[in-house]
């Protein structure tokens, strides 16, 4: 007779707007032993056509393959017709109408039918649309399959559905959005589920990194402002350290609105500025210029790199930007520009 054992791992999942990640640790029953290390799961995913790689971040993108793409085979499913992860993100640049990005932002959109099959918006006829809830479910499903492949390997006791899972949600998510997130998790098969607000999770992580020193930094009565500047969103929350049953406890006392503005917007703005300058210069030189979609994306990435360089190095006055053309002739078609601190 086997006794049903409890979960062996405690798992934290961050279902982010642009990236998803999973961290886990063995559950240590004996508090006198040192805490087991926290590991981040390297998630196997398609990173290019026919190429699988394990990465710690799983981009939250869903690409519906066309028949011309061929089967999108993963180690655990040879005939998959959709892609989740890095390759989905890359294909999203090539074929934007077939990819779902930022499904999480749709989850808290107040005016759409969040359970309705609305994504991707503007998809062609042959694409079977799915709801934001289903998209979130698909990302969780990929994580579960990856866990099965890497950790559980067929052992039913170790399956992710049996582990103790903590799923983070933005503090600014309303009740409906939290409900939908839970729905997606249950659909994926996760039963032992706890929702945790992202700023609190970040704060716990910060405390964890401090080790035993944290008591010197946080006392009862302190209020901590947690600022989360992501790619597409920014969240401000205030967490207070209070006393509960004689012990220090953390409570989120205030949260700002879910701001759909983040690092990516800065990059877009900088890219726009540089593009206008390039067009103006080209016009003045008598050779009018027009950027295509890939060059704009390239420019965004280059603007981000330039931004990081200028913000990271106080002495730098300008950063070069180079955008390649699309064909195989690289040298002749690369466009040059510069991002300066002044403009």
């Amino acid at each position: 007779m086997s006794t049903a054992k409890g979960p062996r791992y405690v798992v934290g999942i961050d279902l982010g707007t642009t990236h998803t990640a999973l961290a886990y640790a063995l559950i240590q029953e004996d508090p006198s032993l040192p805490a087991p290390p926290i590991e981040v799961l390297s998630v196997p995913q398609l990173v290019a056509q026919g190429t699988v790689e394990s990465r710690e971040l799983l981009p939250s993108f869903f690409y519906v393959a066309h028949e011309s793409d061929g089967p999108q085979a993963l180690p655990w499913d040879k005939k998959r017709t959709y892609v989740v992860g890095e390759h989905a993100r890359a294909r999203g640049v090539d074929a934007p109408a077939r990819v779902i990005a930022s499904a999480k932002s749709w989850l808290c959109h107040p005016t759409v039918d969040r359970r309705g099959a609305i994504l991707p918006p503007g998809a062609p006829e042959d694409v079977e649309r799915i709801s934001p809830v289903e998209a979130s479910w698909r990302y969780l499903e990929h994580l579960m399959e990856a866990w099965e492949h890497v950790i559980a390997k067929g052992d039913p006791e170790l399956a992710l559905a049996k582990q103790s899972v903590v799923l983070t949600v933005p503090a600014s998510f309303d009740a409906a959005a939290r409900e939908l997130t839970t729905e997606a998790a249950y659909a994926a098969g996760l039963e032992d589920l706890t929702l945790l607000e992202e700023p609190q999770a970040a704060f716990y992580a910060w405390l964890g990194m401090r080790g035993d020193q944290w008591r010197k930094e946080v006392k009862v009565g302190d209020a901590v402002l947690v600022v989360d500047v992501g790619g597409g969103t920014t969240d401000f929350s205030v967490i207070a350290a209070i006393e509960k049953d004689g012990e220090l406890a953390l409570e989120r006392v205030a949260v700002g609105d879910h701001i759909l503005l983040g690092g990516d917007n800065m990059d877009l703005l900088l890219a726009h500025v540089v593009e206008q300058k390039m067009l103006a210069d080209a016009e003045a030189a008598g050779k009018p210029l027009e950027l295509d979609r890939w060059q704009r994306v390239s420019l965004q990435h280059a603007a981000r790199a330039a931004k990081e360089k200028l913000l990271g190095d106080s002495k730098a006055k300008s950063a070069p930007i180079a955008i390649a053309g699309k064909g195989s002739k690289l040298v002749g078609s690369t466009l040059r520009a510069e991002l300066t601190t002044r403009r």
Binding site: P320, A322, I323, A324, S328, L330, V331, G332, T334, L335
Partner: peptide
């Protein structure tokens, strides 16, 4: 090639281009 356009760069005939053009492409690669 996928991440840095390496093959595109090597396969191109750079002799006819100015250093500045090659430099710009070299940054991308």
């Amino acid at each position: 090639q996928r991440e840095g356009r390496f093959v595109d760069f090597l396969e191109e005939d750079v002799a006819s281009f100015a250093d500045a053009d090659i430099g710009a492409a070299a940054r991308v690669v």
